[in-house]
């Protein structure tokens, strides 16, 4: 067995890192500052009430939830809206339409590799660090398996939402506006900025009827809530599956409807 090629590979990886060391360094520092701010903020909030739990969550649970949510958000970020918007504007979309594969499928599977890689590179390390810092607050068990399935389903819903929003770019030049709207709505209503447990009752019941909570909230709950039974987890996965079907269906219908407009007008 020749070990040389593995060393070469590792070397290339490190070289690559050094080449872009500043970018990486800046991202790490940026995330650290974000964590510091979040940590201090919630510490101050919890310090200002007498009870150890707020809305059923301890300080530690809230922190774990928010840190994992932000890391899930960054690993799922795939800039699909930007890519679709740009290729619609510069006309490259017609090239993509020539491919012997549905556009949505093509995008989904070309993003899949990326997502797997960034799952291992950003989410897993964060998870391990949290486990070490909190002395294993998350009990690893069957929930990890459910979590994995749930993440895949969540990613798919996120993709479907992005695909739907990207399609809107056929009608407008404002990619920035469309994208920022999507980003804040998804971030907020999925519980990535504030845990859904903190939401007022009426808002919470509205959010439960929307697909966004199935992106981050469902996988995170499966991972962190140790009181969940297997049937409960199964029913959560079932809900996610329904959302996958619904969002993909709507996304595809909208796409096919819109693309007809392009081909008719000779976009």
């Amino acid at each position: 067995m020749n070990l040389r090629k593995y060393f070469t590979l590792i070397k290339a990886g490190i070289l690559d890192f050094l080449q872009f060391r500043l970018g990486t360094f800046v991202i790490i520092v940026g995330n650290m500052i974000y964590l510091i701010v979040i940590y201090n903020l919630w510490k101050a909030i919890y310090a200002s009430v007498d009870t150890p739990t707020v809305n059923g969550m301890t300080f530690e649970e809230t922190m774990i939830y928010l840190v994992l949510a932000s890391s899930m958000f960054s690993f799922m970020e795939c800039f699909l809206v930007w890519e679709m918007g740009r290729s619609i504007q510069d006309g490259n979309i017609t090239l993509a339409l020539l491919k012997p594969m549905g556009y949505a499928k093509y995008q989904y599977f070309s993003l899949a590799g990326n997502l797997v890689a960034s799952f291992f590179l950003t989410f897993i390390p964060t998870f391990i660090v949290i486990e070490i810092i909190t002395n294993g607050a998350i009990r690893p068990g069957i929930n990890l398996l459910f979590f994995l399935f749930s993440v895949i389903l969540g990613t798919t819903i996120n993709f479907a939402v992005d695909f739907f929003v990207g399609t809107i770019c056929i009608y407008t030049e404002s990619i920035w506006g469309i994208n920022i709207m999507k980003e804040v709505i998804v971030m907020f209503l999925s519980g990535a900025t504030v845990p859904l447990a903190f939401f007022p009752k009426t808002l919470r019941s509205i959010v439960d009827f929307l697909p966004f909570q199935a992106i981050y909230h469902t996988p995170l709950t499966i991972l962190t809530d140790s009181t969940l039974t297997i049937p409960a987890m199964l029913s959560m996965l079932g809900m996610q599956c329904i959302w996958v079907v619904v969002t993909l269906l709507i996304g595809n219908l909208f796409w096919h409807f819109s693309i007809r407009a392009i081909t008719v007008n000779g976009g």
């Binding site: 407008t172 404002s174 920035w176 506006g177 469309i178 994208n179 920022i180 709207m181 804040v184 709505i185």
Partner: peptide, 8 residues
Amino acid sequence: ISTIGMIF
């Protein structure tokens, strides 16, 4: 659209 995005 940008303005609505900003408001959102």
